[in-house]
């Protein structure tokens, strides 16, 4: 800081060179894209609705499934290849299991998607976690669907 002959502080020199030399946290700014480029889809709303509606249906499907599998007719010890084959001989149980598979997997995957959105901070982390999630979901849903439709009770 410079002073002149009569002791006045020269204000031009006294400005701090870098007022924000340190930042406590990186600026978490709303970017231009946050408010500007808006997605015209209703995807988030439909996802939100799907969670509520599938949840209601799953309560009955899953509880019914658990009671049939684990409680009625001697409980879990009755489950065998023959038991599954007997059930899947009926289109009703095929439809039940197919619906349960799809709803539960999509419900769970969408829940995981929101968890990733809420907890992963870097865009790269988010992207790869979601890639992993989608891959796992698609694999499980397709494999399960394939098994339900192509199940062969006479397999050797």
């Amino acid at each position: 800081m410079a002073t002149d002959s009569i002791g006045n502080v020269e204000l031009t020199d006294s400005t701090p060179t870098d007022a924000t030399a340190f930042l406590i946290e990186p600026p978490r700014k709303r970017t231009k894209t946050t408010s500007g480029r808006r997605s015209r889809t209703n995807f988030e709303m439909l996802a939100w609705l799907f969670m509520r509606l599938s949840g209601i249906v799953l309560v009955f499907l899953v509880l019914g499934h658990l009671i049939i599998q684990l409680v009625l007719d001697g409980g879990v010890s009755k489950i065998s290849f023959a038991f599954v084959a007997g059930r899947w001989a009926s289109p009703f149980w095929q439809a039940w299991d197919l619906l349960m598979l799809w709803l539960a997997m999509l419900h769970g995957a969408n829940g995981m998607r929101t968890v990733i959105n809420d907890y992963a901070e870097r865009p790269g982390t988010r992207f790869w976690l979601k890639v992993l999630l989608v891959a796992a979901t698609v694999f499980t849903v397709l494999l399960g669907t394939l098994v339900i439709f192509t199940f062969d009770p006479n397999i050797s």
Binding site: I24, E25, P27, R28, K29, R30
Partner: peptide
């Protein structure tokens, strides 16, 4: 929390008011 601390208890309120204006 969640906003850039400028000094002591003063935070940058710009993102907050930007969302308000939006």
């Amino acid at each position: 929390k969640g906003m850039t601390v400028l000094k002591d208890l003063v935070v940058d309120m710009d993102p907050f008011f930007q969302a308000y204006r939006d």
